Amino acid sequence: MRAEMRERFLGGRIVWAAFGAAPLPARMVEFMESVLDLPLHDAYGSSEGGGFMIDHRPIRPPVLDYKLLDLPDLGYSRIDLPHPRGELLLRSESVVPGYYNRPDATAEVFDEDGYFHTGDVIAEIAPDELVYVDRVKNVVKLSRGESVAPSRLEGLFSTSEVIQQIFVYGTSDQSYLLAVVVPAQEAVESVGGDPAVLRPRIAWSIWRLAAEADLHAYEIPQAFLLETEPFTPQNGLATDVRKPVRHKLQERYGARLEALYTAMEAFGGDI
């Protein structure tokens, strides 16, 4: 079947393949590599500068240099252990010189030394080996000061066989996370659509993956809403490349999630 997909639907002449826009779950990478019969490369770049990295390593040229910027309000620093973390700033031959007739916007994205602010939180695993953590604007700081990267957690939990999609939610007023879960169709069918059976299966899967990834307790959603409608470009909850549209998800589910926080506090307070 996969050989047929490769030869018949994809033409059978692919010699190199990559993904971008957002990290892919390991299960999806494994599947695509089995279909393509090729390694799937992790590409990183931006509209302003084109490609910057392949497989977590800067492309030289065009990249000339990079550095990490401390984000103390979000809890990221170049002295973090075991790896330095911070916003990735780049000097590159391919970066645009600025925004047309927008000196204010240009000043916001370039520092005084000409480094471009990518807006991405990066961990430097080794010299010239950089791993994406999250967008600066997507990082949530909880009430006890911990910084959480929701998209990283969503990528992890979406590898569950019982979860099709997940939206992780938190605020600076609370010390723990909640989530919205779209269950996998096979999981729904296997329990006859009974949420009383499906909920504990999803919860167990989340905790199992969290334990395997050695997550902190505050990185694990303590409760979740079940949603039967997937996040799609058609309903505005995902982009054309299936990235979650976070502000739209917050608009759709924010009130219900805040109500869930209130209900949980009524049954024992902060957990």
Rank of each mutant, 00 (worst) to 15 (best):
W16C: 14
A17I: 11
A17M: 08
A18I: 07
G20L: 09
L24F: 15
L24G: 04
P25S: 14
P25C: 14
R27L: 15
M28G: 12
M28S: 09
E30M: 08
V35D: 15
V35P: 15
L36N: 11
L36R: 11
D37F: 13
P39K: 07
H41Q: 15
A43R: 03
Y44C: 01
G45L: 04
S47W: 09
S47N: 13
S47Y: 09
E48Q: 10
E48T: 03
E48P: 01
G49N: 08
G51W: 09
I54R: 05
D55V: 05
R57I: 10
P62C: 09
L64W: 10
D65E: 09
L68K: 00
D70G: 00
P72C: 05
L74C: 04
L74K: 08
L74A: 08
Y76M: 02
S77Q: 06
I79K: 11
I79F: 06
I79T: 15
L81Y: 15
P82K: 05
P82S: 06
H83N: 12
H83Y: 11
H83C: 10
H83M: 08
P84L: 00
R85G: 00
G86L: 00
G86E: 00
E87K: 00
E87N: 00
E87L: 00
L90H: 03
E93C: 11
E93K: 11
S94T: 08
V95A: 03
V96N: 11
G98M: 03
Y99F: 14
N101S: 13
N101W: 10
D104F: 06
A105C: 10
T106N: 07
V109M: 07
F110K: 07
F110V: 04
D111C: 07
E112T: 14
D113I: 06
G114L: 11
Y115T: 03
F116M: 13
H117G: 01
H117K: 06
T118G: 05
I122W: 03
A123Y: 04
A123P: 01
E124Q: 15
I125P: 03
I125K: 07
A126E: 15
P127Q: 11
E129P: 03
L130H: 04
L130K: 03
V131P: 02
Y132F: 12
Y132L: 11
V133H: 02
D134W: 02
K137T: 14
N138W: 10
K141Y: 08
G145Q: 05
G145S: 06
G145I: 11
S147Q: 10
S147I: 06
S151W: 01
R152Y: 08
R152F: 06
G155W: 13
G155L: 13
F157E: 02
S158F: 02
T159E: 15
S160R: 09
S160D: 07
S160M: 07
V162E: 14
V162P: 07
